[in-house]
């Protein structure tokens, strides 16, 4: 692991700043994208369409 850094009296963002930056919709979007990318069918269908275009 890296060396440890010590930060004294560090200013933390306010609750409002955190809320604005981390809205649920962006996280939910990330989950949907992850589910989509992990779905094997998109690769199967992608392969089928590619084959159709080529032949």
């Amino acid at each position: 692991m890296n060396m440890i850094k010590f930060l004294l009296d560090r200013e933390e963002p306010s609750s409002e700043q955190i809320r604005q930056r981390m809205d649920f919709d962006s996280i939910y979007g990330g989950v949907k994208y992850q589910k989509w990318i992990m779905n094997p069918w998109i690769y199967v269908l992608g392969g089928v369409f590619t084959a159709l275009i080529w032949f």
Binding site: N2, I4, K5, F6, L7, L8, D9, R10
Partner: peptide, 9 residues
Amino acid sequence: AQRTVSIDS
């Protein structure tokens, strides 16, 4: 990320 310890004086 760098391992950090945040402490107040």
